[in-house]
Write a protein that binds this DNA or RNA. Structure first.
Lengths: 332, 332
DNA sequence: GCGGTTCACTGAAACGTATCAGTGAAGCGA
DNA sequence: TCGCTTCACTGATACGTTTCAGTGAACCGC
């Protein structure tokens, strides 16, 4: 640990015979002659000078970082989303500071506030609890872009919302069309979280379609959802289909099915939600979202907002249906 | 954006009649009477004061953040690793700053240096190019913990190394025992990366075991490896087995196999490396590593090193073999 | 009662940049 | 020639902490 001391802006100033202020301006190409800019650049390169991001952040209040607060990174699709957003931000010369609320509203709140204290220039969030009050305060002090569900409070935020009502309707109608009446619904929502609009919509739609549904929380991990599914599948009046509110939950159901010596779709139909790359391999019929489009939209919105450009955009994503083999093609 | 100004340490000092220095010490429980600590805590809570992390970082040179530089986050197992490390660090009240080298040695270098400039207190890295020279400089200025392959230069680093030689030997011996002679090997290594020790070992072991191998780079994404696999499987002298140097690559092979209307393991045996949770569902026979143990070890080492405690520990992980159905049980 | 410690705290100087309010010189139109 | 603007740059201060080098007072053994 014998680090040589880094060059400071003062040394560059000394080397060029300018004031530190002039160097600061020159390096950012503001208010200085072209010739000076070149001279400063050369001297900086020679001294190996690079502006210290921490000092810069303290003085300017900006870091170039974008916070990404994920609902639950145990979910594979959310992992894909995080990776995609990380890359898209890098392509715009921004860091992503990725945090994981792990499905816990209290942790979500803590992390969001810490992110603000870290002076991120903007925040992309996949809210666990879109109805929480603190989003309003947060959106007052930095640009917030919500993905998935819109924030109920905090009206300065931009949004990339999923038309979950449509997605739920598509899934349930599909199951009904294939002859299913008794269907279990597995959601990632924890009891402590207020019902999400999508969850409420499930019940309404099931009623409309004449479905006999059983909504359960599947927890966060593969093991959790496998456990819940196992309980479901060993009951006497086993459902004929399981609708999972994320592909990761569906994978847990597959696990339970395999362990019980049953088969998809012969003994039980499974329907997913998200369309993770692995679902193609498993033949999971699922509701599909345009991951790439979501990533691009969210990054574009948050970067624009962090530069003080646009605000209050709302982009709605429409779902598609990927028909594969986890639900039998003919009505039963 | 009407943020109320945050309270500063000076206001807390004013409120308690102490000097800012005393408040700073009190909040960190150093060199002050218990009574004063209580008084300061109370005043801080009342004013809603929290130390500004940026100013703190500038003054102290420490951020509480640990950098995590992943080799390629397209890989699902590396995603799991990143998520695990993120959580483990949170449990120790540390942030993880997760970055993705995307398999590119040049990017790896850039990001590593940026991470140092960001004043991370330590760095966990899954090196793309363990032989790169800059690791030595980096390890001189901050604690570095390498996961997977040991860093060739930079002898101050701690390491959680995988016994890849053993892993490779296990996989290849297993395939030989099941009667395979013509086997393809798919590695994530890119041509621009110097051969990793593990890659070299594959060739030596194949020779020892009398295997006729064909080593190929499978790229980073599922589509990449599927493409490479498709090329392999449509050849006249199709290999009887494919050994993939990560489970993600194996998933790409599954995709290619499905698209060609072939079957695993009837037409081709597939062997993975890592044991991602999804491999259980797919029945992929694979080399297993103790993800949880790796996470705990890496986090323990980096946190200890960042607190100036230990150094130069080397922890070796031994592989296991998960026998499932992607390689036929009886010798062919 | 005296030198030496320890204790609890203070004042001031970093840390390295951005930014605000100038300042002198040059350029310009009338 | 005069006032006005623009240009390129400077000096000083702000950002909010940590930390170093004290400083009195209390306490200690002898």
């Amino acid at each position: 640990m014998a680090q040589r001391k880094r060059a400071t802006i003062r040394e560059v100033a000394q080397a060029t015979g300018l004031s530190p202020a002039a160097v600061s301006y020159a390096l950012r190409g503001m208010q200085v002659s072209e010739e000076t800019i070149q001279r400063v650049r050369r001297a900086a390169a020679e001294l190996g000078y690079e502006a210290d991001p921490i000092a810069r952040a303290l003085a300017s209040g900006r870091t170039g970082m974008i916070g990404l607060l994920c609902g639950s990174l145990e979910d594979l699709w959310q992992q894909s989303l995080a990776v995609g957003i990380g890359r898209a931000l890098r392509d715009k010369d921004r860091y992503a500071l990725i945090l994981d609320a792990a499905g816990d509203p209290a942790r979500e709140r803590t992390l969001a506030l810490q992110l603000r204290d870290q002076r991120v220039d903007g925040l992309i969030v996949q809210p666990v609890d879109p109805a929480a009050r603190f989003w309003a305060d947060l959106a007052d002090s930095l640009p917030v872009v919500a993905i998935g569900d819109a924030l109920l409070h905090g009206h300065t935020a931009a949004e990339v919302v999923f038309d979950n009502r449509r997605g739920v309707t598509m899934a349930l109608e599909y199951l009904r069309d294939k002859g299913h009446r008794r269907v279990a619904v597995l959601t990632p929502t924890r009891p402590s979280t207020p019902d999400r609009p999508a969850d409420v919509h499930v019940i309404a739609e099931a009623e409309r379609l004449g479905l006999d549904i059983d909504v359960r929380s599947a927890g966060q991990s593969l093991a959790d959802s496998a456990g819940v599914a196992a309980g479901l599948l060993t009951r006497a009046d086993r459902p004929t289909a399981v609708f999972c509110f994320s592909d990761s939950i569906a994978y847990g159901v597959y696990k339970a099915v395999a362990e019980l010596g049953l088969s998809v779709p012969d003994d039980v139909a499974v329907m997913g939600y998200d369309d993770h790359p692995m679902s193609e391999l498993l033949g999971l019929t699922t509701v599909n979202w345009d991951l790439d489009g979501i990533v691009r939209a969210a990054v574009r919105l948050v970067v624009a907002a962090s530069e003080g450009k646009v605000h209050r955009r709302r982009i709605v994503q429409e779902p598609g249906l990927r028909e594969r083999v986890s639900v039998k093609p003919d009505a039963i």
